[in-house]
């Protein structure tokens, strides 16, 4: 019975691993359908809370699958869901990394690296804009974000201090 659930979890998560793009938000509707609608393993409100927690927590946002696995099938459910989510896509990246290493210095490879660099810079800026828009806290959030940007560009301060500073500013202003 227990093994059966674990196997089902793997069969749900592993294909989704290869359907994930970007930050991992794209597969949430599918996970929701399988876990809440099809199997009824979690309630709607539990799923929403899991989503909120995985967004707040540090690390990859897609760790929502860890929580789902944990609540559906305990510790091994958490472990198995997480690995099913990450292993298939990881093998693909690893394969590409190997091809890359074998062809070091080839003209096409240098061209790919030089060609992708400005595109990636554009992606980082676009992601920053999205984060700016999504930040909750209005003008205070924008002020904190702008200040921390300026500090990082000018000083070699540890990002952790900035993060803690941002939390403190909100606590002081909000209370």
């Amino acid at each position: 019975m227990d093994d059966d659930i674990l196997l089902k979890l793997v069969l749900i998560m592993a294909p989704l691993s290869l359907a994930t793009v970007g930050g991992g938000q794209s597969i949430l509707p599918d996970i929701h359908r399988q876990i809440v609608d099809v199997h009824g393993w979690l309630s709607e409100s539990r799923f929403v809370a899991d989503f909120a927690i995985s967004r707040m927590a540090p690390g990859p946002g897609s760790l929502i699958v860890t929580l789902i696995g944990w609540q559906v099938a305990g510790f091994w459910g958490a472990v198995i869901c997480t690995f099913a989510m990450f292993v298939p896509s990881s093998l693909l990246v690893l394969a590409l990394a190997r091809i890359w290493a074998r062809n070091r210095g080839a003209a096409w490879q240098i061209a790919v690296e030089k060609g992708l660099a400005p595109v990636a810079a554009g992606l980082i800026l676009a992601a920053s804009l999205t984060l700016f828009r999504a930040a909750s806290g209005g003008w205070l959030a924008w002020l904190v974000a702008a200040t921390s940007t300026a500090i990082i560009l000018r000083l070699a301060v540890s990002p952790l201090i900035l993060i803690a500073g941002g939390a403190c500013v909100f606590l002081l202003m909000g209370s």
Partner: peptide, 22 residues
């Protein structure tokens, strides 16, 4: 509040890297 503030400050990391490489 603390989590909102931390997230706002974290934007700086992404933005500063974007500006630097841009």
């Amino acid at each position: 509040l603390a989590l909102q503030g931390a997230a706002a400050a974290a934007i700086g990391l992404s933005l500063s890297m974007g500006l630097r490489s841009g």
